[in-house]
Design a binder for these strands. Sequence first.
DNA 1: TTAGGGTTAG
Length: 712
Amino acid sequence: MKASLRSLFSINPETSFNSYIETCLCLLKDITSQNLVIQGRALHGHLIKTGIHKERYLTTRLLIMYLGSRKSLEANEIVKDLNGFDLVVHNCMINANIQWGNLEEAQRLFDGMPERNEVSWTALISGFMKHGRVEESMWYFERNPFQNVISWTAAICGFVQNGFSFEALKLFLKLLESGVKPNEVTFSSICKACAEINDFRLGLSVFGLIFKAGFEKHVSVCNSLITLSLKMGEVDLARSVFDRMEKRDVVSWTVILDVFIEMGDLGEARRIFDEMPERNEVSWSVMIARYNQSGYPEEAFRLFRQMTRYSFKPNTSCFSIVLSALASLKALRSGMHVHAHVLKIGIEKDVFISNALIDLYSKCGETKDGRLVFDSIVEKDVAHVVSWNSMIGGYGLNGQMEEAKELFDNMPKRNDVSWSAIISGYLEHKQFDLVFAVFNEMLLSGEIPNKSTFSSVLCASASVASLEKGKDLHGKIIKLGFPYDVFLGTALTDTYAKSGDIESSRRVFDRMPDKNEISWTVMVRGLAESGYAKESINLFEEMEKTSITPNELTILSVLFACSHSGLVDKGLKYFNSMEPIYNIKPNGRHYTCVVDMLSRSGRLSEAEDFINSMPFEPDSNAWASLLSGCKTYKNEQIAERAVKNLWKLAEEHPAGYVLLSNIYASAGRWIDAMNVRKLMTEKGLRKSGGCSWVEVRNQVHFFFQKTDHNPK
DNA sequence: TTAGGGTTAG
């Protein structure tokens, strides 16, 4: 329950002094935590009027409030009221200095104290931990004469927060040996340590310990147990802990959201979010983040606006999530709006915010602005490896590979993502030789590739149809122990299929325990394009029995398979059921595939009618397929009409001339072909250069047809 | 003294 200044006036200090003080203390605590110093001043004034401002607890709280918002004048006044620097004031000053990051000043105050209590010692132990200075913290911990639960817990959770979970657990064992009883806070921290270490058995023994010590009903312990269960992959256990809780708080409701997210039920998570008895800015942030991570950045942004309408104050994390959502949406204007707001409240220097901004500008094609943000943090020396990676990725997205490479070469520290970013940049721009070169360099540097690196390099191998590379990568993936991942499995299936080893492709596919629609599509397409049309159609029918729905590429592959196996009616059936059954609107490629199917089987007038009935302008491939059919089945009349349309299209899209000349050439109409070529030369058009490659000693060498312009 | 969000590569 929140007290308010107004409610304070309804209490008569004389008749209920204790509850009056209690309300004031509550209020001051609230005011301090929300940094509402104006309200605090008003309350202070009111207390002076009633004459009880010198009440010891109130004075201390007022001091903490003024120190917390760095109002030194007011703080000094309070100190005067307290008759100088007694033990409590010393402790307050130490804590304030720790909060401001003045650890040396805190230490100086501590050293000058005539007497110290457990609060003074714990302040330094937790203070050094908070600022990552673990060794100094432990120095005080070991010398602390008041070894109570709180100082033990401060050290334990300090270790966890600094990523030393193993040390935290070791200290916890020492605590048990010392005879001091752990409390609910200790157990919460220990749960977190177990979750970080990812040790299932250890997690279970902590469960046992908590029950044995009788802490299984504490809200914070249960909250931690839910998170621990989730991290151990025990979704049902997480849920049963939540269900059995007698009392739940806003943290319990927030963590349960992730239980449903883990179960893949975003809708249920949202329902719970909507009906939660209490929400705070963290609950909002979680829901917004999950929408963003599940591929719904638009809903994430909508929820964010709703949050601000309800007067919740988004914090730094929340802003970074929203900036990331806006980056995905390429919403430059809204992004700049948020940027302006972030500047206004002064959190633009936060690494997470800066990185999200770099990403936002890069994704919107504004690498210059991204670079401005990047340079501003590099200057201040707070650039994290993620900042570098974001900027490299941004350059990669926008085709500025020289800039990307320069940054990559000058990075103070690289991680696997840095390598992945530069590799995927080269992949994006089809510089496959560089993909392999950088990947080799990565291996030589000792950096271990991750799933993302492998999927990029596999994609490059598939593009150059290199079976050797595919096999080599497959071996490395098995060695590293992630062979059955959906992404990697799919990439491997594709690589083998494109390199002509359809048996291996099928083997990988069959061994994948989890498949998504892309995995199925890749296999259906691989079979179809390798000449196994019937197998491809069979696999598609098998896919239909699962809960996975085909996408437009899956259907395209099936149509291709039908076309190449003469199963025209089956193909037409699939085409006609695209919209009603699969809810996919056919695109130009689907239509062309049907035209090809009809033309191949000699149903030429049907094919022509089909082209004419298309809801949009047919492209030259459609006419070319028809023409090709006309050649096979010797239908001059339809052929003439097809050629006429091809000429028309070629005039509109000069690339069509190339196709036209090829069609004439393949039909043996050499004079016509030559005429088209002549026309192309007159118009200054050139056929784009062909490209070939060969693999020698693990190096792919590319050969380009000699042309005047530089081929890519 | 605690438990619940965040940025990058795919």
